[in-house]
């Protein structure tokens, strides 16, 4: 009995060791970047994990000397409108596919499934030329439209799957009471599908903060840039002389998004799970 408990003790110790080491590995980059942003120097080389003196100069620099606040505002604007537009498009399409039987429905569902499988780059040249033709290049709305268009196939499948799970009897009862399609949609479907709506809205809000490819393709001028592009260009230079400014910028981006993630953690996990199961 004693040998049993002592071996368990060793096992537990081992597990705590693993946990602590992993926690250090996970936390190290986080602590390091926060420390970097507070370091007085400029370069990566002089950056210390425990700075001699704390300095907020880099944050100040970002807001006074660079276009950083503008990038922040651009990204927020794009994220916000993409969230609204994508959610509306996805939800209306999903509702139609879930609740109505009409000619072309099956083909539509199949088409959306296939469209998801093309690498998104494939359309890049065409999108570029299209936006050029309609004068939406280097324009935030051009980017928002591209994002929203791209979010439909995946989102609509996901939300359709959720809608399918809501019993139809509720709507039928409402219909007998004389409610119209529009009323049913707003008064019954919307409140019942809140979790999936939150998932769609949050993912589409976070998307533009992360996207690098299309933002770089569509937005050309410095004052139109989003954060992802701006930050990448800050450190992709050879000398890395702006490292600490980048660190400050990175902290300011990561903070709100991370908080958002923790708030909506459950919805995000469930949404992703559902997403994989629904194709």
């Amino acid at each position: 009995m004693t040998s049993m408990s002592s071996s368990r003790k060793v096992g537990n110790m081992l597990m705590y060791a693993v946990l602590i080491i992993t926690a250090l590995c996970v936390l190290y980059p986080v602590v390091w970047i926060v420390a970097g942003s507070l370091n007085p120097g400029d370069s990566l080389f002089s950056s210390r994990l425990i700075p001699d003196t704390l300095s907020f100069a880099h944050y100040q620099y970002l807001f006074t000397e660079t276009d950083y606040p503008l990038w922040y505002w651009n990204t927020f604007k794009i994220a916000f409108w993409n969230m609204i537009l994508s959610t509306v498009l996805v939800v209306t399409a999903a509702y139609a596919f879930s609740r109505f039987r009409f000619p072309g429905r099956k083909q539509g569902l199949m088409a959306m499934l296939v469209l998801q499988m093309f690498p998104s780059f494939m359309g890049m040249i065409a999108i570029y030329i299209l936006l050029l033709q309609v004068n939406l290049l280097d324009n935030h709305w051009g980017l928002i439209l591209v994002y929203a268009g791209g979010s439909i196939p995946f989102g609509a499948w996901l939300v359709k799957g959720y809608f399918d799970g809501i019993p139809r009897s509720l709507e039928e009862a409402a219909k007998i009471d004389g409610a119209s399609d529009v009323t049913i949609f707003y008064k019954i479907m919307m409140p019942l599908s809140k979790p999936i709506l939150v998932f769609i809205a949050v993912t589409n809000f976070i998307g533009p903060w992360m996207d690098f490819i299309f933002a770089r393709l569509v937005l050309r001028s410095d004052e139109k840039k989003t954060l992802a592009v701006g930050l990448f260009e800050m450190i992709s230079g050879r000398a890395n002389t702006e490292f600490t400014n980048f660190a400050a910028g990175a902290v300011l981006v990561a903070l709100p998004i991370t908080i958002l993630f923790f708030i909506f953690q459950d919805q995000l996990v469930n949404g992703l799970k559902a997403g994989a199961n629904k194709g």
Partner: peptide
């Protein structure tokens, strides 16, 4: 709306790409 968006921003570019 979804059809219009998909047609112009997804299908057309992909067709072009192919």
């Amino acid at each position: 709306p979804s059809i219009v968006f998909t047609a112009f921003l997804t299908i057309l570019p992909l067709l072009f790409g192919v």
